Structure formats: C-alpha cells, structure tokens
Computed example of a mutant assay.
Amino acid sequence: MTIVVVRPEPDCSQLVDQLAQHKLAALPCPLVSFAPGRDLPSLPALLSSLPAGSVLVAVSPRAVAFTHQALQQQGLAWPRHCHYVAVGQRTANEWQQVANQPVQYPAREDSEGMLSLAPFNVIKGKQVVILRGESGRDMMGQTLQSQGGQVHYCEAYLRQWAIEPLVSQVVSWPQDTITTVVVTSGQQLAHFDQLITLSGQHWLRQCRILVPSKRIQDQATALGFDTITTVDSVANDALVNTLLRLRKTGLSDD
C-alpha cells in the first residue's frame, strides 16, 4: 500500500513523514505553491473600516498568515469588534494566536459547516469578509448574499501551479503498489486529473481517493474516480487516522 499525497508544502511532506511513522509508504506530490494576493495592499483599510458585528471568514491557515503579514507591515492589528469564523480547527488555532480573538469553527470543515455557526444565523445587512485565494467559497458567498449579507471576497494569496514538471516523476511511480491518493481541495483534484492525462497514467483513476467533502467527492466521481472516501477534514491527523483504519480493514469502508 503506497499513498500519493496531493497537497501543498509543508503539509505534504509532514503528512508523508507521519505516515512513515506508521509504516505506510507515501509519495509527495505538491502541485501548488503560493504568493501574496492582489487584494492585500487594500485589505488592511477594509478591515479597519468594518462596522461592529461584521464577520471575518478564513478559508485556510495560509489566508490568515498572508493577511496577518499585510497588517503587520502597516502596523495594524486585527479588528476587535468582529466575529471570526474559520473553516477548521487548525485555521482557528493559528488565527487565535495572531489575532488574540476568539475564533469559531465547525465540526464539518466546509462551507456548509461554517454557515451553520451562530454568526450567520441573522446575516441581513452585515458585512462579511472572506479571506481566500484567487477563488473559492463561491457557494458560501452566494448563500450569504441571498440572505442579505454584504460579501467582500479578498484575495489574500495566489496559487502557482506546477503540473508539467511533475509529469516525468508520475511516469516513474510504481503502478503495482500505489493504491490510494489523498487530495485536499477541488482545485488540486482538477490539476491532479490533468497531470494524469498529461502523463498517460490513467490507472491512477482506479486508486482509492481520499477527499475532504461531499462536494469534492462529487467532483471526483465526475472525473472518473469510483472508489472515494470522504474524510470531512483536511487535517493531517484526520487523514492519517482514516488511512490507518483503511489499512486495518483491507481498504474497505465496510
């Protein structure tokens, strides 16, 4: 059982190392790196102008880190009169450390989970700032707008994809031992599927794939993956626990 890990660094190598500690072989496949987003220069002014009761949403630790760096460069602090909502526990923990504000997060780490939290119970007329990459959480923003919320998408970071340089690496992967692929976002799944096509390694679609949400499960099904496990988390610990369970049960969800 060899596992392909498709997620950005440093989480990719960290997950590979964690799996090795449990005697699970894994191959790193980081498809994307990151740079500061185009909205960062104007973002501090937006945050400082928000009225009390506004909601800040962070889609990843990366969104928090890039935004915090922009605030520090202008000598500004995170606003104290807003609600803070993170997509998951790791993002919440890292946000609390830099913002010194309480951060809520859902048990189910996706847009639907965040929308179930108290700050979104009555959203009409409220300002909502979604800290993200150059895309993502469109469904969440559309839902909030339909309920009367004023939504600001803020590009805190840019994704830089590297597909073609990995083609030769993928061609050399051992087809007889790779059984599982871990993918932590819809965009990474789309680019991994492109990598499969470019490398001609179509057998990878026959592997079990681990994804973090029902939405990405549906995307994987549409791309031709038919053995899919949904983890409801992108945290490395949750992914490791799921893979250990699958190993114990012989790669069966039964």
Rank of each mutant, 00 (worst) to 15 (best):
T230V: 13
Q142S: 10
M114V: 00
P119F: 07
I123Y: 03
R80M: 09
L47M: 14
R132C: 07
R137P: 05
Q72K: 13
T180D: 01
H191C: 07
Q187N: 15
V98G: 02
N100F: 00
P106M: 10
Y105E: 11
G37C: 04
A162Y: 09
A77K: 15
V211R: 03
E164D: 11
R215K: 04
T227I: 04
W161N: 03
Q145N: 02
L47A: 09
Q74F: 08
I196N: 05
H191Q: 12
A107Y: 07
T184I: 05
P36Q: 12
S111L: 02
L223H: 08
P41K: 04
V234G: 12
I178Y: 04
G37D: 01
P28S: 11
T184D: 00
T91M: 04
S13K: 14
C29K: 10
I228A: 02
Q127F: 01
K124S: 15
A58F: 13
V64P: 09
A190D: 15
T227H: 14
R245C: 02
A70P: 10
L198S: 00
S135T: 14
V167T: 10
A190P: 01
Q73W: 03
G224F: 03
A235Q: 15
L195Q: 04
T67C: 13
G250F: 04
D253G: 09
S146N: 03
S185D: 05
H68N: 15
I209M: 02
S48I: 10
R108L: 12
S42G: 11
V55L: 09
D193I: 06
D110G: 00
V182G: 02
M1D: 00
G75S: 01
P212E: 14
R208G: 12
H83Y: 05
L166Q: 10
P10I: 13
L50M: 06
D254P: 00
I123H: 01
P8Q: 06
G113N: 06
D193N: 15
T67A: 14
P10T: 12
D232L: 14
M139W: 11
R205F: 06
G88K: 08
A26H: 04
S233I: 05
D138K: 14
R137F: 12
M140H: 04
T91Y: 07
F225E: 01
V6Q: 03
R245D: 11
G148I: 13
L144T: 00
G113T: 07
Q188T: 04
Q72W: 04
V6P: 07
G53L: 03
P8I: 01
G148H: 06
R247D: 12
P8R: 08
